[in-house]
């Protein structure tokens, strides 16, 4: 069985990408399972989708714990433990990342033993469209797996995107084929995983859940504003950056309108953005009266920050 996990953010087209790959397998005669996996979080939050494909009926269900291939459409997710990108990777699992960072660097950063591939995409793929990157990733995955033909891939894109019109379909087929072509040197790198043996699986480590008093055992929170421990800043792909030379200390606009209470006003009247929680909606950028807030690609801002601190 092939077990493939896609990682991206809500709104980046991971569900569509997984469905395209699922349909492509289906056209090749495989039994298939594909599904997206959501939490309560919304657009921008880390999410994953998975595909299983086998010539025999598939009995496994739910999240893939031991993937043969992990595809990362947004490389900012790799270092986020909660995103679970590296979960269950072993020495034969392939990690495919759409990234400007080279493979050696990812090997150092992730410390995993299996093959790591960075997806080189030609300029013909519209990189500003996150959905297009997802489709290119699906195409790349198809080639890495090695049992999916270009015809099956094309048909899969048509299946999934036909309601959006022919122009969109054509653009997406191009992106899928670009991903497919980019992985031609690595065709068939991904192999089918074998099921884990029943013997030697170890104990499930069950515990007798203790009876506990209601203060512990009721679904209640006994403190205020605990939500600040949730780093919703991880949802962001762009960040607002305040140019203080242009800020006129109006005191209220950016802070008032920020839905997430991620902009506070310091004692000196300067607004300060809390990047741990800013989701990157950019309402502040649009509302700032003197246009003192700029939208910057998160990866560039983070890189600039690293340079600044280095």
């Amino acid at each position: 069985m092939y077990r493939i996990r896609f990682h991206g953010r809500g709104g980046q087209g991971m569900k569509t990408a997984s469905r395209v790959l699922g349909s492509a397998f289906f056209h090749e005669g495989f039994e298939v399972q594909d599904a997206p996996r959501y939490g309560a979080e919304r657009r921008g939050a880390p999410m994953n989708a998975y595909v299983r494909a086998d010539r025999a009926p598939i009995y496994e269900r739910g999240i893939i714990l031991r993937p043969d291939l992990v595809i990362v459409a947004d490389d900012t997710l790799v270092p986020i433990p909660a995103a679970g990108v590296l979960q269950g990777l072993d020495n034969r699992s392939v990690l495919l990342i759409d990234s400007a960072t080279p493979e050696d660097e990812w090997r150092k950063r992730t410390n995993i033993g299996g093959p790591i591939l960075v997806l080189p995409l030609p300029d013909t793929v519209d990189r500003s469209s996150l959905a297009m990157i997802g489709i290119a990733c699906a195409g790349a995955a198809a080639r890495l797996i090695g049992v999916i033909s270009e015809d099956a891939l094309e048909q899969a894109v048509r299946d999934e995107l036909a309601p959006l019109g022919e122009a969109v379909v054509e653009k997406n087929i191009q992106a899928a084929m670009a991903g497919y072509a980019a992985m031609s040197d690595h065709a068939g790198t991904v192999s089918e995983g074998v099921p884990a043996a029943a013997s030697g699986a170890g104990s499930p480590d069950w515990v007798d859940v203790p009876v506990e008093e209601v203060r512990l055992s009721g679904p209640a929170i006994h403190a205020g504003a605990t939500s600040v421990e949730v780093r919703t800043g991880l949802w962001r792909t762009f960040r607002p950056v305040i140019h203080y030379d242009r800020c006129n200390h109006c005191n209220w606009v950016c802070s008032s309108f920020c839905p997430d209470n991620a902009i506070s006003v310091a004692e000196d009247g300067r607004p300060v953005i809390d990047y741990d929680h800013c989701k990157g909606c950019m309402i502040c950028v649009v509302q700032c009266p003197p246009h003192a807030i700029e939208s910057v690609l998160e990866v560039e801002a983070a890189a600039a920050e690293r340079r600044g601190s280095a």
Partner: peptide, 25 residues
């Protein structure tokens, strides 16, 4: 209008949620 806000950050609402903005106010 207040320049510090009471509602804690870190909620699961969508980025740019008009409802959350209102509740915060």
């Amino acid at each position: 209008l207040p320049s510090t806000h009471l509602l804690g950050a870190g909620t699961a609402m969508c980025a740019g949620c008009g409802g959350l903005e209102m509740i915060k106010e």
